[in-house]
Design a protein around this nucleic acid. Structure first.
Length: 254
DNA sequence: AACTATGCCAACCGCAATTAA
DNA sequence: GTTAATTGCGGTTGGCATAGT
């Protein structure tokens, strides 16, 4: 059984939109609106597209005042701050950035901002990190990324970032939470860089009070654990993943 | 010049939430 | 209250462009 498909998949065109299709959709919506029914819209205007596809095209591309690319520092900060606070709620984040779409922000985060962050976060590796596997980021799953730390890392009696394995890093950094928040309060952070990255004025945005809760007041271990309870590996897990780990390091991560 | 790897982004997919009947 | 249709969202994929070898 399962649910009925939203459209006849066999008679629906997929893939990139042609300028003609764009023009048809745009002029119709500008003249008559969507009519409150995206599913019926393509038939009305003679487009062989799924209603969902029309909606997406309109929202992400044809809608007036859409901005593409060229994110400003201020926008970066807003995205980062909101991601730290609420995670991957792209539509909410997009609502705070006029002219930006959730898809755009999501792409920007996955392809650039996240890397920028990782680059800052792993100073010993940023120049020499290589990723294997094309779909590393697309899969949004860092657990199968192997990091080749070709640079020299200083010898230390405790686990440093350059020695933490990717699965652990993934666990800490990628499970519904921001990389940033996992490091707040951790002894393996680099205070000056984190200050630079996260001690900007916490962006307080209208209409999002409920989402912030206590988080806007301080970034404590308790708060990040409260917000992202599944992110913190146990000492045992940590040792399994990356060998002997100094207990202090683990406590720091907690 | 040819090949391969990577970056980027538009678009699709599936699921959950919402709305209408 | 239940069911079906529609909408909205986040994750993922496909393919083009560019860089690197």
């Amino acid at each position: 059984m399962g649910r009925a498909p939203c459209c006849d998949k066999a008679n629906v065109k997929k893939g990139p939109w042609s300028p003609e299709e764009d023009a048809k959709l745009k002029s119709y919506i500008e003249k008559s609106g969507t009519g409150g029914n995206w599913i019926a819209l393509p038939q009305k205007i003679g487009l062989k597209r799924c209603g969902k596809s029309c909606r997406l095209r309109w929202l992400n591309y044809l809608r007036p005042n859409i901005k593409h690319g060229g994110f400003s520092e201020e926008e970066d900060r807003i995205i980062l701050s909101l991601y730290i606070s609420i995670g991957s709620r792209w539509s909410i984040i997009a609502a705070q950035l006029p002219g930006r779409t959730d898809n755009d922000i999501k792409n920007y985060w996955n392809t650039r901002l996240k890397k920028k962050l990782i680059g800052k976060q792993l100073p010993n590796q940023s120049r020499n990190v290589k990723q294997e596997g094309k779909k590393t980021y697309a899969n949004n799953n860092l657990s199968h990324v192997s990091i080749k730390a070709e640079g020299s890392s200083s010898q230390s009696s405790t686990t440093s970032w350059s020695e933490i394995s990717m699965p652990l890093y993934h666990k800490m950094a990628s499970n519904q939470m921001s990389l940033a928040s996992s490091l707040i309060g951790s002894v393996v952070t680099y205070p000056s860089e984190l200050d630079e990255m996260f001690n900007f004025n916490q962006v307080k945005l209208e209409g999002l009070d409920g989402l912030y809760g206590e988080i806007s007041t301080s970034w404590s271990n308790e708060v990040s654990e409260l917000m992202f309870p599944s992110m913190t590996p146990s000492l045992q897990e940590m040792q399994q993943l990356c060998g002997p780990v100094d207990e202090q390091v683990h406590l720091g991560i907690q």
